[in-house]
């Protein structure tokens, strides 16, 4: 009997997965029928959001709470990975080669500029803290793999937590200014969003790079 079950399992799982897929497809068709309400709501409120890119407005203003928690999730992941204490071998620097070092000389500064551009352009066009953070993390890893950069524990901890800190401080300050959690004053909303996004970019880059290294930087512990 167990043998039979084992033989039938792929078929059963496949059938179940296909049935679930059909349900999802049906749900998708239904959402297509009454779409557009959310788009109108966002576009109507867009002038008060401080940015002109509706996706950034949703992420940092209308649903800022989600993004705050998302930065917290990222940080929590890194803390969990550090806590696992994998005792991986130190990330070895790649052997020096003229090709890699000239690539680094060219692409290192370029990546920083691209990250800054993506951060800035997020206010009006596709872009923002996550894209900029991902590009910056790539730059950090290039430097790290080249053996050119091995930041200390104190720097890494600050870089990892500055995004959540700034976001939290903003969330604490806003009820006093406007009376709502993460509800920015419309006149200076753009500035607040840029402030949060800049800090978030640094933290996202640091966390992604640190997740790749997967080893807690050695340094003073309290």
């Amino acid at each position: 009997m167990p043998k039979l079950i084992k033989r039938c399992l792929p078929v059963l799982v496949g059938a179940g997965a296909v049935a679930l897929g059909a349900l999802i497809a049906a749900a998708w068709v239904r959402t297509q029928e009454n779409g557009g309400a959310m788009t109108r709501a966002v576009l109507e409120a867009l002038p008060d959001s401080g940015v002109s890119n509706p996706v950034t407005a949703v992420l940092l203003n209308f649903r800022g709470f989600d993004t705050l928690l998302e930065v917290a999730v990222l940080m929590l992941t890194l803390i969990a990975v550090w806590a696992l204490d994998l005792r991986l071998p130190r990330t070895e620097a790649l052997p020096p080669s003229p090709v890699f070092s000239s690539l680094l000389r060219f692409s290192g500064p370029l990546l920083v500029v691209i990250a800054g551009y993506l951060l800035w352009v997020g206010a009006s066009e596709p872009g923002g803290a996550f894209q900029a953070g991902a590009v910056l993390a790539g730059g950090c890893l290039l430097l790290r793999l080249a053996g050119r950069w091995n930041p200390g524990a104190r720097f890494v901890r600050w870089a990892v937590s500055v995004g959540l800190l700034v976001f939290l401080l903003t969330a604490i300050a806003m009820p006093g200014l406007t009376g709502g959690l993460l509800q920015y004053p419309p006149a200076s909303a753009g500035m607040w969003i840029l402030l949060i996004e800049t800090a978030a970019t640094v933290s996202i880059a640091a966390i992604l790079a640190a997740l790749f290294v997967a080893r807690e930087p050695e340094g003073p512990r309290r």
Binding site: M38, T39, V55, R63
Partner: peptide
């Protein structure tokens, strides 16, 4: 215009 909420 595309709905920005799913994009976010």
């Amino acid at each position: 215009a595309a709905d920005p909420v799913p994009h976010a």
